[in-house]
């Protein structure tokens, strides 16, 4: 079963079995503007929730992407290196950043639902 949650750092997290796929939201890509470079974590790296683990460079600025959950990175999306503009065009689909196994499944459930995230955006 697939479930999707969101973070207040504007990431989406899709859980398929034991593997979580992480990307940035459409709101985030829109705020960043044209993405020209993405730096991704290497497979095997353990990250703690809130730890900076990826960087998105737009024309204007570099922005950190934080691990939404603690766990171990299993795979990064190599397509983004060749085509960083995918982040703008397909933020919530093809332009996923990395996949990870989670230390604690319960932490996933504590993230924002789609409705929660939309409500959160409305407060910004």
């Amino acid at each position: 079963m697939t479930e999707i949650r969101f973070s207040k750092d504007h990431e989406w997290i899709r859980l398929d079995g034991d593997v979580a796929t992480v990307g940035i939201t459409d709101h985030a890509q829109s705020a960043l503007g044209d993405v020209v470079f993405v730096e991704l974590p290497e497979a095997g790296r353990h990250v703690d929730a809130g730890e900076g683990c990826a960087v998105v460079e737009s024309v204007k600025a570099a922005s950190d992407v934080y691990a939404p959950l603690s766990g171990t990175v299993t795979e990064a999306n190599g397509a983004l290196a060749d085509e960083p503009g995918m982040v703008n065009a397909q933020a919530e689909s093809g332009a996923w950043f990395f996949r990870m196994t989670l230390d604690d499944r319960a932490a996933f459930d504590a993230l924002l639902t789609a409705d929660d995230y939309q409500a959160f955006l409305a407060t910004l």
Partner: peptide, 11 residues
Amino acid sequence: PVQYDGIIAEH
């Protein structure tokens, strides 16, 4: 204004 449609397209 820092951008309209996007910096790359405008550039």
